[in-house]
Structure formats: structure tokens, C-alpha cells
């Protein structure tokens, strides 16, 4: 089983707040609570990026957190995906031209999926995770990733 299969079947998700307001953080933590429950899709929130296949980044990327983000990203497994959550994570949002924000998240690390919103609803974040799972699935059929491919 290659590393790709882990994103296809059960991606482990890690969260990095690069200087946000905690709003997106709350919605990401809400993912593991009973109403949203991403464990239905085989995903777990992990505190260490080393254990994770998908990195969720929120916040406007302050100068202080930039090195830490790159450091955490490098320690992840080779086949990794990044989701930028919130308008700050996507473009810098209202903080874009302030004094300690020089670069956006996608100028520092490659971003595979953008989830805009302030903050985006947990359903939107789940949608992004599931889309990444479908993308990595060979059959490319929607919904198969969530259920798993039958007969294999």
C-alpha cells in the first residue's frame, strides 16, 4: 500500500494556526465533535504534523509563524496535501497589507485546496477533505472515497 492510499481511505489531518483569530480553529475543532464528526470518513485530527497526511492552515501567516509553518510542512510525509482555510489563509483577508504579514500561505507552501469564508462552515472544510480523498482515488467517482472502493 503506497502513501497515496492513506489519503484515499483515511487521511489524518493536522491543523496549523498561522496567526488567526481562533474562529477557524473553533470550526476545525468542531469537525471532531458529534454533529460533524469527520471520523465518518476515516479522518482524525492529529496534533503533530508528522502524523498527518493533510495539513489545514488558517490565519494570515504572520512573520513569526512563517518559519514554523515551513518547518512543520517539511516534516510531513512526502505525499501530502494542504488546505487553506478561511479568507485569511486563502489571501490574507483584512490583514493582508499590515506590517507583519509579508507573504501569503500559498507563496510559502503549495496549497491544494482553498476554503474561503470567515470562518467557513465545518461542512465546507469536510467537503474539502472529501474532495482531496476523491482526487486521490483512482476511480475518480464522487462518493466512492467516502465509502471505500468495493471489491478490493
Amino acid at each position: 500500500m503506497g502513501l497515496r492510499n492513506s489519503i484515499k481511505k483515511s487521511p489524518w489531518v493536522s491543523y496549523f494556526n498561522s496567526g488567526g483569530c481562533n474562529g477557524c480553529a473553533l470550526e476545525v475543532v468542531a469537525l471532531i465533535t458529534p454533529r460533524y464528526d469527520i471520523e465518518r470518513f476515516g479522518a482524525i485530527l492529529k496534533s503533530s504534523a508528522r502524523h498527518a497526511d493533510i495539513l489545514i492552515v488558517s490565519g494570515a501567516l504572520t512573520e513569526q509563524s512563517r518559519k514554523r509553518l515551513v518547518n512543520g510542512y517539511r516534516q510531513m510525509s512526502p505525499d501530502k496535501k494542504v488546505i487553506a482555510v478561511g479568507i485569511c489563509g486563502c489571501s490574507g483577508g483584512p490583514f493582508r497589507f499590515t506590517y507583519n504579514i509579508k507573504k501569503r500561505v500559498d507563496e510559502v507552501i503549495p496549497v491544494d485546496m482553498y476554503v474561503p469564508g470567515c470562518p467557513p462552515r465545518p461542512e465546507a472544510i469536510i467537503n474539502a477533505i472529501v474532495k482531496l480523498m476523491v482526487e486521490n482515488d483512482g476511480s475518480k467517482q464522487k462518493g466512492t472515497a467516502a465509502r471505500g472502493r468495493k471489491g478490493k
Binding site: 483569530c21 481562533n22 477557524c24 480553529a25 473553533l26 470562518p119
Partner: peptide, 9 residues
Amino acid sequence: QRVCGICPT
């Protein structure tokens, strides 16, 4: 409101 996500109000 964007100062904090827990106590914006």
C-alpha cells in the same frame, strides 16, 4: 470582530 474568534461581540 476579527480581533478574536471566541469573543467577537
